[in-house]
Design a protein around this nucleic acid. Sequence first.
DNA 1: ACTCGCCGACTACAAGTGTAGCCGACGCAG
DNA 2: CTGCGTCGGCTACACTTGTAGTCGGCGAGT
Lengths: 121, 121
Amino acid sequence: MERIGDAELAVMEVLWGEAPLTAAEVAERVPAERGWSASTVKTMLSRLSAKGVVAYREEGRRYLYSPAIDREDYAAQESGRLLDRMFGGRLTPLVAQLARRDRLSPRDIEEIEALLKALKP
Amino acid sequence: MERIGDAELAVMEVLWGEAPLTAAEVAERVPAERGWSASTVKTMLSRLSAKGVVAYREEGRRYLYSPAIDREDYAAQESGRLLDRMFGGRLTPLVAQLARRDRLSPRDIEEIEALLKALKP
DNA sequence: ACTCGCCGACTACAAGTGTAGCCGACGCAG
DNA sequence: CTGCGTCGGCTACACTTGTAGTCGGCGAGT
């Protein structure tokens, strides 16, 4: 249910890739393009804990952070939000949309067809 | 390229449905659940103009507002953003995601299959 | 010509987000 | 035992978003 900002998401991605990590380790792993200071990473981690999407365990005087939500769950939540916001909750118009915008390669089409076939009764 | 918030989007939806409209008309048409004051709608319209996603024409001493971007373009932009943020820019994992979460009805499956078939060379 | 109401402009303010500095405390190297 | 570096916590500040109030001016009715 919690909202995660773009910058915060970068931290989540690190933790989803590897956990538990100390704040310093997270900082090392955050994409360099961000050009973040160590402070920034620490703030992100605090806020994410406050939101309950990151958990930590104390190890000596450091914290070891881990994600408290699954990436899958978050992705599903965000997908649902977009669908509701823009497509009346239906997936078909979204696919149609992307098709019209050339975001669908022939390979995508094959894959999705296979996927759908597997889903049929 | 511009970011539109949730509340702002409600105004855009009104204008996408009917335009041009005066601020007062927009206010009338915004979903009542929002419980907005007239002021709020006026603020939204100013901000949306500042962002360049809404245009206006002066009519006497009132403004007639119209959307300056297509709903389609915006939907495509937001879809792309989600895909990039969560699914490596690929649609297949998104569909797989939604399938696993029961957001796909048999009817959706049929529709999308038909859609994809039409796209094939 | 005067007044009244409506209009956009401007102002306000709290919450959230991006970014970062400073500080007191704790532990390790001499 | 002492100093120094490291760690989380706290503070800061600008910008965005949601929500709304006030105000000066223009136009319509009398």
